[in-house]
Amino acid sequence: MSTVYTAINNAEQSRKREFLNGASATFPLLVGAAPFGIIFGTLAEPNGLSALGAILMSLIVFAGASQFIALGLLAAGASIPIIIATTFIVNFRHILYSANLVSKVKHLPHYWRAIMAFGLTDETFAAVNNRYLQQGNLTRAHWFYLGSFLAMYSNWVLCTYIGLTLGNIFPQMQDWGLDFAMSVTFIGMVIPYLKNRPVIVAVLVSAILAIVSHDLPHKLGLLLASFAGISVGISLLMIKNRSSKVGESK
């Protein structure tokens, strides 16, 4: 009886530990996401989205890049179906993230998978990916995911609210360049991956194509650059593996 009790107690503790580790691993990313959430809030009303609409968008859609693009399109007078179609294209990259995580969620019940899907962002994916790359017991790693997601989510909604308030006090805030916070966060996330030539070339191809195709409609350039970078990377990796096999057989 007492061993059963201890086992339950341990399970609960390790869930709590995973949850807190997930939140704290995400902390640096919150620092970068906060200014981004704040400018989303400041930009909402000048671009034609009501304060309530901005908060609801952060609560319900929870997708930074596409929320920004939606504001830009609203200001440009784009129709709602066009904005929704653009959101689809911009967020299509999440299918690549979820494909990467499929093998880690397949044992979980569907309500867990739905919560994790809702919380899938660039930042949480990066934090969780590092967790899954570690060795050790991964049976409760979904609590790590939940900790990361809730940290990002509460930060995003809170910063939207702060931005709405600050935007009324400092209307010129949108020119401060706070969007750089997101770029610098993503730079910090990319550098640790650059460990071998296929990845470095893949990233360079992606960068160049993203710049060249920036003017394509609906932000299609993001997808084009991503697929091109991944294709080049996997091709180089296969060539590298093949030539090392040939080398071994001699």
């Binding site: 690549l96 499929v102 998978r113 960068a207 991503s226």
Partner: peptide
Amino acid sequence: FAMAGKIHFPSWLNKALEFVPPVVLMAIIA
């Protein structure tokens, strides 16, 4: 996620997906 457990990716695709994080982030940064 909904189809997880029912789908199986070939190994080349799993390897290709390892390029996803840096490549996608770079397409946003650049």
